[in-house]
């Protein structure tokens, strides 16, 4: 666990702060993806404030845990967590999506320390994560590799190639997290291209699967503890059932809030609902 790990209760409070940042950043930028950023807030908060063994002062330490946000459009949640975790000043969050900013619209490796992969063309992160995990095994390094994908994202064939590979190579240091909020861009996942039964699919591909309510911090902690302690010899996939737009009533489960930033007035309403001001 990270040195200054927050408790589960503290993570619940931190998660509100993360949600506030997401809303504020997007409103300021005037564009971006609120729905899938908000749905992933509990998992990303738990990762950055309890589970990831990372030191923001040494973002390239060889033994660091890796976190790859494969659904790169949700990067506001990662930037918010990274800022709160000390990777950069919270004030920099307001530069999101501006010209010359380090906080690019989708994650860019090399621009901002702590970003492990350039993502944004969906479907590629799990392969990169497999590479990190394979290197870790080859080097007998102790680090874990976490990769978060969207449920729409896993439509991509490359994801299933990577899934086959990870199981074949017994990448037990690899933890995939599917942020299964049930909505992609054009509509609901089950209307566009059905994925169910999702747990069975990952299990059939040779993964150890844990299914949780991913907006419940208790279940998130429990799942990540089990995943980190994994002794199955298989890679672990957490199917994290979440609500797109979670925490903001008028965004929750709304297809239309996939890629539209809130106006100043909408942001105010959202912040009032989220609460959690120190």
């Amino acid at each position: 666990m990270s040195m200054n790990a927050l408790s589960q209760a503290e993570c619940v409070a931190k998660c509100r702060v993360i949600r506030r940042h997401i809303i504020e950043m997007l409103a300021e930028a005037g564009s971006g993806h609120p729905g899938g950023s908000l749905s992933a807030a509990e998992v990303v908060t738990a990762l950055y404030f309890h589970f990831l063994r990372q030191d923001p002062a040494q973002p390239e330490a060889a033994d660091r845990d890796r976190f790859i946000l494969s659904k790169g459009h949700a990067v506001p949640v990662q930037y918010a967590a990274m800022a709160e975790a000390g990777y950069f000043e919270v004030s920099e969050l307001s530069t999101l999506r501006r010209i010359d900013a380090r906080l690019q619209g989708h994650p860019v490796k090399g621009t901002l320390p702590g970003i492990e992969a350039s993502t944004g063309a969906l479907g590629q992160g799990l392969s990169i994560a497999c590479g990190h995990a394979l290197a870790g095994k080859m080097d007998a390094a102790g680090y874990k590799v976490f990769c978060m994908m969207g449920d729409g994202e896993i439509d991509e064939g490359q994801v299933w190639e990577a899934a086959l590979f990870a199981a074949h190579q017994k990448l037990s240091n690899l933890i995939a997290i599917v942020d299964a909020n049930g909505i992609q861009l054009d509509g609901r996942v089950e209307d566009i291209l059905g994925l169910e039964p999702l747990v069975d699919k990952w299990a059939a591909f040779g993964w150890s699967v844990i299914e949780i309510d991913g907006n419940d911090m208790g279940q998130v902690f429990d799942a990540l503890e089990r995943a980190v302690a994994n002794t199955s010899g298989q890679p672990v996939c957490i199917i994290s059932r979440t609500v797109k737009g979670k925490g903001v009533s008028f965004m929750e489960n709304g297809v239309e809030w996939h890629g539209v930033a809130p106006t100043a007035e909408e942001a105010e309403r959202a912040l009032a609902e989220i609460g959690g001001v120190a």
């Binding site: 930028a29 459009h73 999506r97 690019q104 619209g105 350039s118 944004g120 063309a121």
Partner: peptide, 8 residues
């Protein structure tokens, strides 16, 4: 296409 950045 602007703000979405280079990946798109």
């Amino acid at each position: 296409l602007g703000e979405d950045g280079a990946s798109q």
